[in-house]
Structures are given as structure tokens and as C-alpha cells.
């Protein structure tokens, strides 16, 4: 590229605008709701988790942010489980289509339970059940237990009220 000793103003501005646009252009995930999951995968995982911890007088798994917990962890500590999740979701979606002709999240509750009971002993079900519990009962800083839903349900005060013993070391 030949650089003029007196670069014209248009080229100067065009080049600079290009430089300024680099960070924006580099972002390919703008506007997405989830860090790892697609909306469809999140719906399926949410439906499974809501069968494991269904809403009643207290929030269920989805309301308590369990899907957010799983999504966040799949980009962090559980990144090694990404494939397992994708395969598990694909398998259960295929089964839902074959048996009922609908997406898993669109099935009636009893139909969802039918499919899940058949898979209760699988590694995928055990994994998602474990993660649903972790997201529901764990600390909200990890993405789940929104508004301390499970702790409120169990009557656990948060933050705990804990004073210190005011022990005078000069008198001991």
C-alpha cells in the first residue's frame, strides 16, 4: 500500500473509523441472552429442571435461575461438560419428536415425566439433576438461587446475623 506524504482527510477518517470499529466488529455474541446455550437448548434444560424441582408455593428451578447457573458454569468450571449437555439435549429432543411429535419443552407435564423416567438412570439425567440442585441451593453469586429462593424456602437467614465476641485480650 502506498502511503501518501499528505494523506487526504477522507482516507484518514476512514482508516481511523476502521480502527475504532475493531472492538465492536470483534464481538459476535452481541445481544445474546445466554453465554453458552442457545434459546432452544435453554428451554429444554429449563423444562427438565422444572420437572426435577417443580414450582409450587415456592419458586421452581427455572424461576430460581437454575438455567442461568448451568449456562454460566458451562462457560466456566463445567466447560468440559459442554458436549455432554449438547448430546443429552439432542437425544431427549429426538425422543420427544419421535414419541410425541413436539419439542420437549412444548410437551404436557405427564409426557415430559414419561420421557424423563425412561432416562432416570442415565449419566445425563444424573448430571443435570446434580446441577439443578447446585443451582437451586447454592450461592446466588454463581448464577442460581435467585433472590435466595431456596434459602427463604428453608428459613435460612441471609446474610447470617453473626456478631463477634468482644474479648479483651489485655485481660486474658
Amino acid at each position: 500500500m502506498k502511503i501518501s506524504r499528505n494523506p487526504d482527510r477522507r482516507r484518514f477518517l476512514r482508516t481511523a473509523a476502521g480502527v475504532a470499529a475493531i472492538p465492536a466488529a470483534s464481538c459476535t455474541r452481541a445481544g445474546r441472552r445466554w453465554r453458552f446455550l442457545t434459546d432452544e437448548q435453554a428451554d429444554t434444560i429449563g423444562a427438565i429442571c422444572d420437572q426435577i424441582i417443580p414450582p409450587d408455593q415456592d419458586p421452581g428451578a427455572v424461576s430460581a435461575g437454575v438455567v442461568h447457573f448451568i449456562d454460566r458454569q458451562l462457560k466456566g468450571h463445567y466447560a468440559y461438560l459442554q458436549d455432554a449437555y449438547i448430546k443429552g439435549v439432542v437425544e431427549i429432543e429426538q425422543a420427544a419428536q419421535e414419541k410425541f411429535g413436539k419439542r420437549f419443552s412444548a410437551l404436557a407435564s405427564e409426557q415430559q415425566l414419561d420421557l424423563l423416567r425412561e432416562r432416570e438412570k442415565t449419566a445425563f439425567f444424573r448430571m443435570i439433576a446434580d446441577h439443578a440442585m447446585q443451582g437451586f441451593y447454592g450461592d446466588p453469586r454463581h448464577g442460581g438461587n435467585r433472590d435466595f429462593a431456596s434459602w427463604k424456602m428453608m428459613g435460612i437467614p441471609n446474610p447470617p446475623v453473626r456478631g463477634r465476641q468482644q474479648h479483651d485480650l489485655t485481660k486474658s
Binding site: M1, K2, I3, R5, P7, F12, L13, T15, A16, A17, V19, A20, A21
Partner: peptide, 21 residues
């Protein structure tokens, strides 16, 4: 010319990137 081009990039970025942002 290469130094001039590099310098122009830096100056332009400093001048225009904040305004653009």
C-alpha cells in the same frame, strides 16, 4: 512511510475512537 502510517493509525484512533464510542 510505515512509521508514518503507524503513527497515523495511533493518532486517528486516539482522536476518533473516544468520540465514536
Amino acid at each position: 512511510n510505515i512509521f508514518l502510517a503507524a503513527g497515523l493509525f495511533v493518532v486517528a484512533a486516539l482522536l476518533i475512537a473516544p468520540g465514536g464510542s
